[in-house]
Amino acid sequence: MTDALVVTDLHVEFSGFVAVGGVSFDAHPGEVRFLIGPNGAGKTTCIDAITGLTRGTGSARLGDQELLGRPVHKIVRLGVGRTFQTASVFDELTVLQNLDIAAGRHRRSASLLRARRGVGASIEHALAETGLTGELATPAGILSHGQKQWLEIAMLLVQDARVLLLDEPVAGMSQDERTATGELLQRIAAKRIVLVVEHDMDFMRRFATRVTVLHQGQVLSQGTVAEVQADPKVQEVYLGTAGAATTAAMAVVLERED
């Protein structure tokens, strides 16, 4: 079993503007953990800080290892992987080449000089898990939007990441693709820490085990989906001042609950 990801009192400041002001949460293997909140709540900034992309203070520990303050590639080597809001795969390389590069951190550098022979077991497993087996030789650039997102998740799987930080993994996906992605996340979460940043409340409601709601860089509420939705503070933020799109989405969710 992997250790937990524990974030304590995380602060991120951009030249005076406090994007994240003292956020604490934890994520364990076996749960699909969601981080939600209106635009500008600091969700992505939290992930950026944990992965070393932006500087944060406080603490983010994976097991007994402190992540903050290390360079990006070192944090990755500790087993923390992430995806981005816009699927970023290597367009000019095939699906196989993309995955092969992701698998590379377990390889010795000398082996880089050789050509690849065959497909490794971990790559085959990741392809099967994400339903991309048929696209092995397809250049990643011509995959559909949903397939690109899955390729990113497959890359995290072959990378053997212990922590998967997924930034809006279902944005722009069809309903069927969302369901498939959600089920995929539940499967892989059995042995790994899965933390999802999402706008899509319906997706969150269906697949979240535990939710943390952020608002203006602070934790507004934390708990199961039902607990969070029952929280009057959350209702106020979502139905009151927050961005129109999320308000509408949350309103739909709340109506259904009623």
């Binding site: 990755v76 290597f90 993309n98 992701a102 590379g104 951190r105």
Partner: peptide, 20 residues
């Protein structure tokens, strides 16, 4: 593999960093 990694670095340097 180095050749593939080099192209990957050319096209998306930041992403390569996030692969370790």
């Amino acid at each position: 593999r180095f050749g593939e990694l080099l192209v990957a670095t050319r096209d998306a340097e930041e992403r390569v960093r996030f692969l370790g």
